[in-house]
């Protein structure tokens, strides 16, 4: 009975501590001017992604891929009907841009999430287990790390034919975990030596319990930080792939829009078509990057140098 009560209390105080830590973190974050800019930008993109569902409901001509303005059969500049103008078939550029935000978030977050999960698990395991498991996992990480991801996706596209958006997401994730796992491993190594882990071990906790109950909560903020950097990488790779003509031909992404304007010969003539997608890709990258940097400052500053290297 008393032990249970103690446990509850412990749990409650831990929860409290965690909340306090978040609050402190936010206080530090708020001071970072660039970090605030990053958040604002990001919110705009989130709004864009959410708004992307609206135009096709207004009129079928706003369908980003197959909808065309019945009266416009050439590329036209911005107007009331088409806020950013139309492409040369009469498709609305603004709704394409909104749809692009949705694709960017889907690709970025999904693949970053998978790679973070992988990286965290592998990093923790390697750090905690040590020995040959560590060597094996880290050497694998070394190998994957030197491979240029974009080119890897390209070669897979050559072998397996046209890739759809989810296989692209998965491939990016599979080639983007090593950086995270290295940092998580380093963190785990230091955690391993802390007294509370020893205490847990003495109390008879299993490896799994120690890993997930005691180590994971302590490395998660770091993982989360790395997720922001992975998101930018994934968005950029998908965009580059689409730009080169190997994207999922069924999705309207910003990279795809750039490919269209480049290949159909409108890039000198239609700045309203060339500029927005490029600015969006760049800004969403910037916003995640700023977010990451600001979070970096919030977390242990000692990690910072480590962080920039991967």
């Amino acid at each position: 009975m008393p032990s249970r009560k103690k446990k509850i209390l412990e749990e409650r105080s831990r929860r409290w501590r965690r909340m306090e830590r978040w609050a402190q973190g936010w206080a530090i974050y708020k001071k970072n001017f660039l970090g605030r800019i990053g958040l604002v930008l990001l919110s705009i993109f989130v709004l864009m992604a959410l708004a992307s569902f609206i135009p096709p409901l207004v009129d079928p001509m706003y369908k980003p891929m197959s909808g065309v303005d019945p009266e416009i059969t050439a590329s036209t500049g911005p107007s009331f009907r088409h806020w950013l103008g139309t492409d040369f078939m009469g498709r609305d550029l603004f709704s394409q841009l909104l749809a692009g935000a949705r694709v960017a978030f889907t690709v970025g977050i999904a693949s970053a999430f998978v790679s973070i999960v992988l990286g965290t698990l592998i990093g923790m395991t390697a750090g905690y287990m040590g020995g040959w498991t560590d060597t094996l996992l880290m050497r694998t990480a070394d190998i994957i790390m030197v491979m240029p991801t974009l080119l890897v996706v390209l070669i897979l596209a050559a072998l397996f034919g046209q890739l759809n958006i989810w296989s692209i997401v998965l491939i990016i994730a599979l080639f983007r975990w090593p950086g995270v796992s290295r940092v998580i491993r380093a963190q785990t190594l230091t955690l391993k030596e802390r007294p509370f882990i020893d205490a847990a071990r003495v109390a008879g906790a299993s490896h799994l319990r120690i890993l997930f109950r005691h180590i994971m909560p302590n490395v998660l903020p770091l993982s989360f930080l790395y997720m922001t950097f992975r998101v930018t990488a994934a968005i950029n790779i998908e965009a580059a792939l689409a730009f080169l003509g190997f994207g999922d031909p069924g999705t309207v992404s910003w990279g795809m829009m750039l490919q269209w304007v480049w290949k159909t010969g409108y890039m000198f003539k239609a700045p309203y078509w060339l500029l927005p997608p490029g600015i969006c890709i760049s800004l969403i990258t910037l916003s995640f990057y700023l977010l990451g940097r600001a979070m970096d400052e919030v977390l242990d500053p000692r990690l910072r140098k480590e962080g920039e290297r991967y």
């Binding site: 950029n236 060339l274 997608p277 760049s282 990258t285 910037l286 990057y289």
Partner: peptide, 21 residues
């Protein structure tokens, strides 16, 4: 920060537009 996060192919197209065109 800005040049580091700019989308490379787009930057290339913009440079073509400015310096080439």
């Amino acid at each position: 920060l800005v040049t580091h996060t700019v989308f490379l192919p787009w930057m290339a197209l913009i440079l073509i537009w400015i310096f080439g065109y």
